[in-house]
């Protein structure tokens, strides 16, 4: 069975990478191929990484409050590159009022502080698996 490929990225200027690194390791330990882009990636760089790495999913970690600028831009670029089937999940400090807007922009999963790692693994497995198997 093909391994799920996930790009974990930290967009924006925020350098708090604890969450991104912990999730990257948890996904890798759960059997996924994880590509961690490192810090301060622009939406363009993130989408280019997803394209180059043939990613099934993108995980964005944002704690700075810039999510309403970054996420819609990532979604738009994915569409432009024909990568609409790549699922996007985000983790971080996201005010409740922004959640419906992010979902409307096409973000599949939003994980707030305190989410068990297993829930994120399960979410990616169940949302990506059908696509990976169809290939």
């Amino acid at each position: 069975m093909k391994k799920i490929r996930v790009v974990i990225a930290k967009p924006g200027l925020d350098g708090h990478d604890r969450g991104a690194k912990v999730i990257a390791r948890a996904l890798r330990d759960a059997g996924m191929e994880v590509i961690y882009t490192g810090l301060r990636q622009t939406p363009e760089q993130i989408v280019a990484a997803a394209l180059q790495e043939d990613a099934d999913a993108i995980g964005l970690s944002i704690l700075s409050g810039a999510h309403m600028h970054i996420c819609p831009r990532v979604m738009q670029l994915l569409k432009e590159k024909g990568l609409d089937d790549v699922i996007v999940v985000i983790g971080g400090i996201i005010p409740d009022v922004d959640i419906p807007k992010l979902k409307a922009a096409g973000v599949k999963g939003i994980f707030l502080p305190g989410t068990p790692m297993q829930s994120i693994i399960d979410f990616i497995n169940s949302n990506v698996r059908p696509r990976a198997e169809a290939v």
């Binding site: 924006g12 200027l13 622009t42 700075s64 600028h69």
Partner: peptide
């Protein structure tokens, strides 16, 4: 964050920050 990273508000990376 733009101030902490030495970027003015009109820099690309300051978007939303």
């Amino acid at each position: 964050l733009p101030t902490l990273m030495g970027r003015d508000p009109d820099h690309e990376l300051s978007l939303g920050e």
